[in-house]
Design a protein around this nucleic acid. Structure first.
Lengths: 244, 244
DNA sequence: ATCTTAAATGAATGACGTTCATTCGATATG
DNA sequence: CATATCGAATGAACGTCATTCATTTAAGAT
């Protein structure tokens, strides 16, 4: 029914043959450049194609669809950011480690707001979330977060009455909320302050104490016990530490 | 150039004239029903129109565009949820209040997952965020959160070394993270447990104590003071409560 | 009965992503 | 050098939708 033959075979330009790698890389680079300029939503496939020096259809030889291309762009882009990170291992102290985990993500966001917007707002609601760079980031960072918390619980530094997953959600969630506000241009985005605040609240909120309460009570408790012992050496009227 | 005249004037159905309110309400109801069935992404304007018993173009008399219609649907839907909430005022104790704030949002999400997905994933990245029901929710809940925190700081129950805005971000962010996982069908969604965990960490993380440490020390401190007073009625060796 | 006005219509349009029959060019083969 | 082969590249056509707008219709006013 439809004749789809391009009869006018004006030979435009002699399509220079390249290896697949080169073409694919060209397209990825072009896509990244266009996204950086216009944001995901306004980025047309034809923009990318033009910039890559190919024709629309060619993109579909290398990528399944637009989203697939976009996800791959984000993966590369985000991967570069991870390389700049310092190592968690070199940092001592639970609270400092928590602070670093928050700081790292916040730094990436501050350094690459376009990438952050791209991943957070445009790529995140992927039906196939597990293929998303956002998921990858979460997976990676979550692993370390859980490690830090688990160690703290095992050493008795942290109480174990709140799931480490919850702490992870608090840390990442808080960062995300601040990021949204940042991307919207609301308020400031003080990386150090935010990282410090999150780490401080979580650390204090989880810090275990000998008497089962929270805080640095060692001194108080010792003094109370000493005084109590003096008052009542037999221990008859002592508060019921252990009965029977 | 183009003749846009529908020459065949088959008078289908005598378009019954309704008041604007009714039509608008019909369309809103139809939209909500279709969204509930198919989700935002798969909802076509023509679906809504058909269900509302109008024709596509009619929708544009009552709503600016598809997104505008969607946002209004979400506003109504979400507004209903707020009505079911119990009052924060009736709840005593800072930690209980925090728990309630978390619990309230989590309950809505659990009760109306389609609404949650709709607001969180599909409507949230609105260029005009401030018109979004998500923004409205945040504004409303944030107000109360800040109120609770401010009171706690003023009464000396909370330390003031972390911005209340950060606590808000932690609370809402944590909820959001759990919601994403819930909507993705990962893990369980125990409203009480999550609300309790968040409130507990934040409360402990912020609780101010007389000695500058953290924890529920009132009892201990009182006992220590009583005992100390007995030992040294003159107060000579009492810990430096007030000197000079 | 006729005029006026706003609601309703639905075919046309435009914007995009995606497809696919066809063409092109490099390499292998005789 | 001529020819066959095969994958890469092409770009016009297509399908899906949101959106527009010239035209029609119904209800109230005169």
């Amino acid at each position: 029914m439809t004749a789809r033959s391009p009869k006018s075979a004006a030979k435009k330009k002699a399509a220079t043959r390249l290896s697949s790698d080169d073409r694919s890389a060209d397209i990825l680079a072009a896509a990244r450049a266009v996204i950086a300029e216009k944001g995901y939503e306004k980025t047309l496939l034809s923009d990318i194609a033009r910039r890559a020096g190919v024709v629309d259809g060619t993109i579909y030889r290398y990528f399944e669809n637009k989203r697939d291309l976009m996800v791959k762009v984000a993966q590369i882009w985000f991967g570069e950011q991870l390389l700049m990170d310092s190592h968690l291992e070199s940092i001592a102290g639970t609270q400092n480690r928590l602070r670093h985990l928050a700081w790292r993500t916040l730094s990436i966001i501050q350094r690459e707001p376009v990438l952050a917007r791209f991943m957070l707002m445009e790529l995140r609601p992927d039906p196939n979330y597990r293929n998303t760079p956002f998921f990858e980031m979460n997976r990676r960072f979550t692993h370390e977060m859980l490690q830090v918390c688990r160690e703290a619980v095992e050493s008795g530094e942290f109480l174990s009455d709140v799931s480490p997953n919850m702490l992870r959600d608090m840390l990442h969630g808080c960062i995300e909320h601040r990021t949204w506000a940042f991307l919207r241009g609301e308020g400031d985005f003080d990386v150090d302050e935010v990282a410090d605040g999150i780490a401080r609240v979580i650390y204090r909120g989880m810090a275990a104490r000998p008497d089962g309460t929270v805080g640095s009570l060692d001194g108080l408790v010792r003094r109370l016990e000493a005084v109590t012992a003096k008052l009542d050496p037999a221990g008859a009227n002592a508060h019921p530490k252990r009965r029977g």
